[in-house]
Structures are given as C-alpha cells and as structure tokens.
Design a protein around this nucleic acid. Structure first.
Length: 432
DNA sequence: TCTGGGGTCCTAGGACCC
DNA sequence: TCTGGGGTCCTAGGACCC
C-alpha cells in the first residue's frame, strides 16, 4: 500500500468535521443558550414547564436518545446515542431541544457548497463531515485549513475541525485531535508520537466489539496494535479484518475519495412508544406498517428509484432483532406493493414476543425508467417470468402487483414455519 | 435509566448451475 | 454410485459509521 497520488507525490487529504453539528445549528436559532449544556434529541417536542423558556432533560420521559450534545453537556458525560433518561441522570438541568432535520440539511448543503468553491474533489461522508483531496490546491496546509474554516464560517456561522494528512484514515483521526475549532496537520513521521498513544477505538473502523476483543488481548493503544504480529491478528480477527488492523495501526491507507455514489437501499423504521403485542395491538401495528410503507414509497418516488428487493426488520422487547427479505420478480415502488411484500416477509417470522420496532427496507434499487428499458429486451422478459402463470403480468402501471418468483416462494415456505398458528395469523393481518 | 434512525460492507451457508 | 469444484444469487445476521 502507498499513500502516493497518481503522480508519485504524497497526497494531501483533508477531513473536515463540523463541531457538535446539530447542537450548533440549534444555537444559531437560540443564541441565548450559548455556553449552556444543550442536548438535541427526543422523538417529539418536550413541553416546557411554565415559567421556564426551555424544557429540561430531567422532564423528559420516553425512549429517545441524544443525537448531539454541546461540549458543555458532554462535560457531564452525555454523548450522542445515549438514552435521554440516562443522560438526564447525568445532566438533569441541561436544555433539551427537539431535532430539526430540515435546518441541518440546509446548513449541511451550505457548508458543502462553500467548500466546493475551493475544490470540487469532495467525498460526502454524511450530514456533517467530508473528505477533500487538496493535493493540487496551491498553498501551505495550515493556511489552507484556516481558509477552509473561514469559508465554512462565512457560509454558516459555524466552526469546524480539520485534519490534513496523506490519507483518509489519518485525516479522520487528526481532525479529532484538536476539536472543537481545531486544525491538525500530520506527516507520516509523526505517527509514532501523535497516533500510537491513542486508544484503538480512535481508528475509524474499530468499534465496540473489536475494541473489547483487543483489550482482552491486552492491546489498548494503536501503538500496541502496531506491534502485534500480523499473522497473529489474522488468526484471531480473520484474514480481511486482521490484515486491515495491521495496516491501519501503521497509518497506511490508499483508498481513493469516492466523489459520487448511488444509494444501495432506502429504509424507514420506527421504535414504538411502548412495546406492542402482536394480537392485542394488531390495529396499531397494521397502521404503523402502512405509515412506513407510505413514507418509503414517497422516498422512492422523490429519489426516482424502484426496489427489486423488499425487507422487513423487527426488534422484540428483549432487543433481539431479525430481518426477512425477499427478491421480487419485478421492481416496485408503490405503497400497496411494498405492503404486500412486507406481509409476505412477516409470514416467515415467529411472533412470540412483543415488538418494540418495525422497519421496512427497499433494496436492489433501480433507477425509475431503467427497468422498462430492460424489460423490452427479449432475454429480460424471460428472466422476469412474464410467461410464468403464477405471476400477474404488468399491465401498464399494474406491474407492481407481481409477486416473488416461484423459487423464492418455495424457499420461503420451507424451514422456518411459525410455531404458533394464531400469532402467524395475526401477523398476516397487519398488512391486509 | 436501558439502548433512535438512516445507512454500508462483510461473512457464511444453501440453492442452483455448469 | 459416488465424486468433484467453481461461480453466482439469495438470505440472515452482525459490525460499524454518522
């Protein structure tokens, strides 16, 4: 692996990360909260107590999690992903604001558009961070970083942190080092002093599970990981991951920037206010499934995709999660077809516990229109099973009523039969 | 005081085909 | 009668990220 660009010169990759993004956008709306512990999250607006301008964390009841917290709130130990009830125990007086995703999306577009004026070589890594290839942008790295920060500040009024190194892996870690409002420039020669003392968890790609396993082997820092025998890592973490761990610990990463990407799947899911019983809450579950299908159909229409594969996700009261999916003979995008496919998937689940979450996912995405071109090919007609009598064939806009191929239907019915007939009936009822 | 919602990628086994 | 191995598709689950 190398960190060289095409010309042989070292690359210059920047990682730009907005500081406490959602919370910072909220502070633009509520400047009076600046300097206070503020948490953004929750599933619905919390009613403010009379006499108090803002709701407090301690008054929250429900299953929401913190989406972001200001640095003042983080000082209490609150971090994103933490349950709000737990966060309230740590910082009861912190202000709790509901999320306003439209506003975050707007500000996100604004900062990315501003940065694109400096270089078009941008990899979008979500709502609040990007990678930039600044190898060919003239200017010294620190000056360039300060310029980018100023460009972002002018466009949004917000601060960000920037790391500049020869690759994405190191830049991601570098941008964290001086957060918030920081700039960190790192060369490969600084890996032993700046990177190796960090915990393994600081590497993008080493999560909670891998961290725990490494700690079990007394490997806590990236430096200790770098010293580990690569063959030993492969033995314990598998060929692919073990090899990658070794490379990552030495700061080696030659991945190019991904400048554009087509979505692979689109999904909608919801956690219920309380766990729902398969039979007693049948009407509610049915309505929730319908809502999810409607929202997914809207997403597909807005983005111009059809789904060749539909899947459901269920999470039970004990937090175990299962998925079932099904490849269709014909791509679909409308609410009724999504619900029909979801119903087929639901029949393959044993529903013996209460549910806390339901989700639906559209995969195997094809661009709207593309499937019609394909279908006009003779071979495609045969593959789509248009001569299969079990398949209701597409009459103009009705092609979406096509169900799964005979093959996947066969498989669906063997093996995993629901053990409780009545529960199975109830499941089927949701989508009827 | 239990754990959101939106994604991607990887692995692994079985079916199926050659 | 038993024996193959390779390749692809489908499905389920899990790790990880923002």
């Amino acid at each position: 692996m190398s960190d060289q660009g095409g010309s042989g010169a070292p690359r210059r990759i920047a990682h730009l990360d907005m500081d406490a993004f959602f919370a910072s956008v909220e502070l633009l709306e509520h400047p009076d909260l600046k300097g206070l512990p503020v948490v953004v999250g929750g599933r619905r607006p919390v009613a403010a107590i009379a006499g108090q301008p803002y709701p407090r964390l301690k008054d929250y009841v429900g299953r929401g999690v913190a989406t972001t917290a200001t640095y003042e709130a983080r000082a209490f130990g609150v971090h994103s992903g933490m349950g709000l009830m737990k966060a309230a125990a740590l910082a009861p007086e912190a202000i709790l604001l509901p999320a306003h995703f439209e506003a975050y999306t707007r500000v996100s577009r604004a900062f990315k558009a501003a940065v694109a004026e400096v270089t078009p070589l941008i990899e979008d890594r979500g709502i609040d961070e990007i990678y930039l290839d600044i190898t060919e942008v003239p200017g010294e790295s620190r000056a360039l970083a300060l310029h980018l920060k100023e460009v972002v500040r002018r466009a949004t009024g917000l601060t960000c942190s920037i790391g500049i190194t020869p690759n994405k892996l190191l830049s991601k870690m570098a941008s964290e080092l001086e957060k918030p409002d920081g700039v960190t420039i790192l060369g490969l020669d600084e890996i032993p002093t700046r990177i190796w003392p960090l915990p393994c968890r600081a590497v993008n790609g080493i999560g909670p599970k891998a961290t725990a396993k490494l700690v079990g082997f007394h490997i806590r820092t990236i430096g200790e990981l770098a010293k580990a025998n690569p063959a030993w890592l492969v033995e314990h973490f598998g060929r692919s991951y073990g090899t990658w761990l070794h490379e990552a610990a030495h700061g080696r990463d030659d991945r190019p920037l991904t400048l554009s990407r087509e979505p692979k799947s689109i999904s909608r899911e919801t956690t219920f206010e309380r766990d729902l019983h398969v039979k007693l809450d049948r009407a509610a579950l049915s309505q929730i499934l319908l809502n999810l299908c409607e929202r997914l159909a809207e997403d597909l229409a807005r983005k111009g995709y059809l789904a060749q594969c539909v899947g459901i996700k269920l999470r039970f009261e004990d937090f175990t999660t299962i998925t079932r999916d099904q490849t269709l003979t014909w791509p679909i995008a409308d609410t009724a077809s999504l619900r029909e496919a979801a119903r087929t998937c639901l029949k393959r689940v044993t529903l013996d516990r209460r549910l806390r979450l339901m989700g639906i996912r559209a995969g195997g995405l094809v661009k709207e229109g593309a499937h019609l071109l394909q279908a006009s090919e003779p071979t495609a007609v045969a593959e789509y099973g248009l001569f299969n009598p079990s398949c209701q064939c597409p009459s103009e806009d009705q092609f979406s009523s096509c169900r799964s191929s005979a093959r996947s239907n066969t498989r669906a019915h063997e093996g995993h039969q629901p053990s409780d007939e009545s529960c199975s009936d109830a499941a089927a009822g949701w989508a009827e």
